[in-house]
Simulated assay, not measured.
Amino acid sequence: MTDLRETDGVADDGGQGSAPIPRAGRRRRLIQQGRIVLGPDHSVACAIADVSNEGARLRVPARVALPDTFPLVIAAHDLRTVTVRLRWRRGDYAGVTFEGGGFYVE
């Protein structure tokens, strides 16, 4: 049996009801502020609800269209910018994975 707490809970078949996709790593619950960079003069505020070394769950208004990849500025102990890839979108939440070196979670 698949533990749904260890999955994104979203099928990659356009929502046709197949099994959840397992997560690559455990996520830590937190709330941090972030900004999604959509262009040189355009960014959108978001909340980072969960984070792991491999990815994060973002809260961003559903009306905001997100590209496949985009820079995400994370306000943690320091200010970090990482490139992320959109993996799923459900309402005001989006799941992303970190491209390249990832993100260190303490």
Results as ranks from 00 to 15, higher is better:
G15D: 09
V10H: 12
R35L: 11
L79Y: 12
T2M: 11
Y104I: 14
A11E: 12
R27T: 02
R85E: 14
G95S: 07
I21Y: 01
A19G: 00
D13T: 15
R27N: 02
S18K: 09
T7I: 08
R29W: 08
A56C: 12
V73H: 04
D41I: 01
G95T: 03
R23A: 09
V96L: 13
I36P: 00
A65I: 11
T2P: 01
Q32M: 14
E54T: 10
P71Y: 11
R35C: 08
R5I: 02
A62D: 15
V51Q: 00
G34E: 07
Q32Y: 09
A94D: 00
R87P: 01
G100C: 01
N53D: 09
R23N: 01
V37Q: 05
A65S: 13
G9P: 08
E106F: 11
P22M: 09
R57F: 05
G100I: 14
G34M: 11
V84P: 00
V44N: 03
R27D: 03
Q32A: 15
T83W: 11
T97E: 13
V51H: 03
G95P: 01
G17K: 04
L86E: 00
E106D: 09
A49K: 13
G55R: 06
A62W: 05
V60M: 04
C46V: 13
R29M: 13
H77Y: 09
D12L: 10
R35K: 14
P71A: 13
